[in-house]
Nucleic acid binder design. Structure first.
Lengths: 186, 186
DNA sequence: GCAAAGATACCGACCGCGCGGTATGTTTAC
DNA sequence: GTAAACATACCGCGCGGTCGGTATCTTTGC
């Protein structure tokens, strides 16, 4: 192994981002104070401000890291799909329902509530989705597929607002139904 | 008419609730400070605390008022619908897209972002929706109708996160399509 | 090879501000 | 008169952010 260095700034930075995300998931965006994040990462407030010039920069970095994970998850999901048509929509539905990046049952699910609550972070999310959509116009530009993706978003919204119940629906059944709607018509 | 009184507490209370909603819509939930609401309503902070025992009580009242409006809007929309099957779902879709209570293009649309961001208010919204759903089980308990409602929620989410664009879709076309899905099959 | 020099990483104390909330005084309505 | 409807003044707290100092790593000069 390589000799261990005493100071590992990259690791500290990653820890800060992860702690920020964890706190946001646990207590909402209002719980994400500079002090709390610093404490949680075992650093002082001054130390945090050495890595991030402002609190907003920290939050931006947090969302960026999250979106990267999501990107990777969706990409690998698409790669496993033999059918081109609707592959992005299927990958998206899977990520929303059972994905590890921000699926229902992950703690990161509630993190997204925090993201939506902040106007800057909300915009970032919107841009990400817009870019992703543009990239898959060839295979996923269809009215029904749009509805399926919107329904997935709605299911997520319902899940986080109604204490883990989506209008009394079985999640698995809903997911299966949405996926079945993504097969090419005719 | 009765002679005009200088002090009209009920009117002041309503003004406080409306101002709180307006500020939440304009600046997000973090902008809703006791001072800001009081100033905006032409009252001092002490005056506000005379009407509401705490800030949370003010927020609760704000959401209650909003849900009452929404209830009324949906009820009247259902009353105008000759077909029982899916009448609630249609009313819901209409409210989300073009309603005056919290439709896309109203300022109250962004207010709901604030509601979702607060765990207490979020729960209130979830309960409201759950009750409403229970009430219409006879006419609106169907998988497709569920998907339609979820898609409407998703469309709203997309609207507020992507600067008034829903995946490049025409809003009118999407609304028409969702409504067409609510007609009884077979 | 090895200090000196300089950059980087981090600590700890501090600051101003605005928050939610309170205690008390003053005006108005009936 | 007296109770409700306000205004005024104030408090403690926690926030984001700053700053001077220090320990640690990296580069440079010879």
């Amino acid at each position: 192994m390589s000799y261990s260095r005493k100071k590992q700034p990259e690791q500290v930075q990653r820890a800060l981002l992860e702690c920020a995300a964890k706190i946001a998931a646990d207590q909402g965006i209002s719980g994400v104070t500079v002090q709390a994040v610093a404490d949680s990462a075992g650093v002082t407030k001054g130390g945090l401000f050495h890595h991030f010039p402002s609190k907003q920069a920290l939050l931006d970095g947090m969302v960026d890291a999250l979106l990267e994970k999501l990107d990777a998850e969706i990409d690998s999901s698409i790669a496993e799909d033999p059918v081109p048509y609707g592959s992005f929509t299927r990958a998206y539905v899977k990520s929303v329902f059972v994905g590890k990046a921000f699926g229902f049952e992950t703690p990161w699910s509630t993190l997204f509530v925090a993201v939506i609550g902040d106007s800057v972070l909300r915009r970032r999310w919107g841009e990400w989705f817009g870019e992703r959509l543009e990239r898959h116009r060839a295979t996923d530009d269809d009215l029904t597929l749009n509805v399926v993706r919107l329904a997935a978003d709605g299911a997520w919204l319902s899940y986080v607002t109604a204490d883990s119940k989506v209008g009394g629906l079985e999640l698995d059944a809903l997911r299966a139904h949405l996926l079945s709607l993504t097969v090419k018509p005719r």
